[in-house]
Amino acid sequence: MRDMAKWATYKSTAWTTLLGGGIAVASWGLNATFRNVTVPQYNTDYVSFLVVGILVANFILPVGAGVSSRLNPYTLESILMTGPKLATLVVGTSLWPYMLSALFAIPQVLIGVYVFGAHLRVDPLSFAIASIIGILIVLALAIIATGIKIVTKQADPITWGVALAASILSGMTFPIQHLNDYIPGLSSVSWLLPQTWIFHIIRLATLTDASIFDPSTALAFLAASIYALVLLPLSYFVFSISLRRAKKEGSLGWF
């Protein structure tokens, strides 16, 4: 509520964000229309592939940005003195940015479908599970980034790395197989990134009508789940030791 109330006070920001989202999807859609190619990996066309990329970029990835931008050292002392649980902190700080980005994702997808003719074949159960796995992975990465930021104060290599990996290697705007055209074998590196799996399982769920009970789909979902299962406890560990170190150094309130 606090975050929403604050955001609503920046009226021009709200309007420009809304317009910016529409303009972005329009430009991507136009771009995709001119490059009328198929994407055999998901048995679809490039417009549809791109629209789902936008969906993930707006629906899943901003969750992490919300956590790391709000859980900064400046506000951390005041918040920690209330004695909250880590889960409350994370959910509380990421809820509004997530809701906001989800809200913007809906009209963008509608424009993609009805204006640019994207073909979505959604399996609701698979989509719900893929979204949950994706959100958990992004949250874990954001908590790790926040933990590092508590110690380093300025440098936030994880957030930078997440953004860079998402934009270049994870296949947000193009099928990762094309990476091999530039550097042979680069797509294999891409599969090591958790973001690649987020894009992959959401595309399976929204472009191919893939059922979670289908063995090959289940395998992809399992691989993504392993990332979530490893990253979540790791993020808790990194955040805890970072917090302890900042408390040892007495630098919690520095920023």
Partner: peptide, 14 residues
């Protein structure tokens, strides 16, 4: 509970 002046942690726009 502590009142740390100068480090309020309040949100100014609400």
């Amino acid at each position: 509970q502590t009142v740390l002046a100068g480090n309020e942690g309040f949100e100014l726009r609400i």
